[in-house]
Structures are given as structure tokens and as C-alpha cells.
């Protein structure tokens, strides 16, 4: 990624100088990665596309405020992640009202039953669906941290820059997120296939959804 930075900066400069195509070119260099972040954070493709568009139009307009103290991609990611978090929080508010169980089956239209997925492509898709569905149960901040660090492979420090919070906060969000995610993964949890029966997870390890929304305990650091 670092080797792409000079070209990214040049595109940003050309954009600020009025080149009508520079920003589009910049976006197209990174769009798959930005898309992955948005889709992983929001799960729903329509929501992800909306969030991405909002974010990138906003980035287009605010490019003049880019100071160059972070990599261009970090800056882009930050805007995209923030747009996704905003949407995720609103999703969380909507989801506070009880939903029928089949709400969880929606995004990819696949059965959530992993055992039915025999072929490897189907299994990939089913696992993606299961993981993204489970992720949606987490507080948006924890979800975003896990998406960046565990799924996208950003270092804790890079994620901290993107999320605009201390590295320690990223670590604790990841730790908390993993602890909450594990029981939610059910048969997709690591090593679950080796176990005849999943042992119950102690109740205090489960997310307390009422307490975790809408104001997150981590927010004192922002």
C-alpha cells in the first residue's frame, strides 16, 4: 500500500487543483478495498453502496481539507468507516425493536444453516453470511475495529488512525468484539466442527445489547 501513496497524493493534488477526473481515478484504485470495508461493516449491499457513495461524495468535497498527515487511503478509509458507523448506529436503533428471526436470512438470500452447504463456494458464501450476520450483533465500534484489524489486516496503529482513537482503544474493542462474536458464530466458530456439542458460554460473556446502545462505553476517548 505504501508504494501507491505517492500516486495517491498526486491524484489528490490534481483533484484539488481542479482536474475533473483525478478523484474518480483515485477512488477506482481503492474501490474494492473500500467496498469490502463497507460491506463487512454493514452486511447489506444496498446500505454499503449508499454509505460508500455518501462518503466518497463527501470526500470529494472535502479534499481541500486533507492535510497530508495521514496516508490518502487512511483518510479515505476514515471517511468511509465513519459513514458506515453512522449507518450502523441507525441500524442498531432500528433493530432495537424486536425483529422476526428471519431478518437474519436476508442479505445474500442463502440459508443460514451451515451444514447444508457442501460445495466449497456455497460454503464460502454461507460462512460469509454467517460471520457478517454475527458481526451485526456487535456494537458498531467493535465491529469496525474487527473489520479493520482481523478482516482487512490493518495494524492496530493503522486502525487507530482510521478510527481516530488511541491504539489501546482499538485493542480493547477488538478483544471485546471477539469475545462477543465467538458464541454468536455457532457452528462457524473455530474448531466447532471438532466438538460434538458446543458447551454453553457463560452468560456474563454475552453482549448486553440493552446496555451497549446507543451510547457506547468507549466513547469517552473520542
Amino acid at each position: 500500500m505504501a508504494d501507491r501513496e505517492p500516486a495517491d497524493r498526486e491524484l489528490m493534488q490534481r483533484h484539488v487543483d481542479g482536474d475533473p477526473d483525478a478523484f474518480g481515478e483515485l477512488v477506482s484504485r481503492h474501490r474494492d478495498r473500500l467496498w469490502a470495508v463497507a460491506l463487512r461493516t454493514l452486511r447489506d449491499p444496498d446500505e454499503a453502496a449508499d454509505a460508500l457513495q455518501d462518503a466518497l461524495v463527501s470526500a470529494f468535497r472535502r479534499a481541500g481539507s486533507y492535510r497530508g498527515d495521514a496516508a490518502v487511503t487512511t483518510w479515505l478509509h476514515r471517511i468511509v468507516v465513519n459513514a458506515c458507523l453512522d449507518r450502523a448506529r441507525r441500524q442498531a436503533v432500528r433493530r432495537a425493536e424486536p425483529l422476526p428471526d428471519n431478518d437474519h436470512h436476508g442479505a445474500t438470500g442463502l440459508s443460514p444453516t451451515p451444514r447444508d452447504a457442501v460445495e466449497s463456494v456455497a460454503e464460502d458464501t454461507a460462512r460469509r453470511d454467517a460471520v457478517l450476520t454475527a458481526l451485526r450483533e456487535l456494537a458498531p465500534e467493535q465491529r469496525a475495529a474487527l473489520v479493520l484489524v482481523d478482516m482487512e489486516g490493518y495494524s492496530v496503529n493503522e486502525a487507530a488512525q482510521i478510527l481516530d482513537c488511541p491504539a489501546g482503544t482499538v485493542k480493547s474493542r477488538c478483544s471485546r468484539g471477539r469475545a462477543q462474536l465467538l458464541p454468536l458464530l455457532g457452528a462457524w466458530a473455530p474448531g466447532a466442527a471438532d466438538r460434538a456439542v458446543m458447551e454453553p458460554i457463560p452468560a456474563e460473556g454475552r453482549p448486553n445489547r440493552t446496555a451497549s446502545r446507543p451510547s457506547q462505553p468507549e466513547q469517552e476517548v473520542t
Binding site: R127, R128, V131, M151, L182, L185, A189, G191
Partner: peptide
């Protein structure tokens, strides 16, 4: 161990 392997599961998505 499950928690330790969890990031790999997430990365494989």
C-alpha cells in the same frame, strides 16, 4: 484457542 483462531476465521471471509 477458539478466540485465538477467530481472527483467521474472520480473515478468511
Amino acid at each position: 484457542d477458539q478466540l485465538n483462531d477467530l481472527p483467521a476465521v474472520l480473515a478468511s471471509v
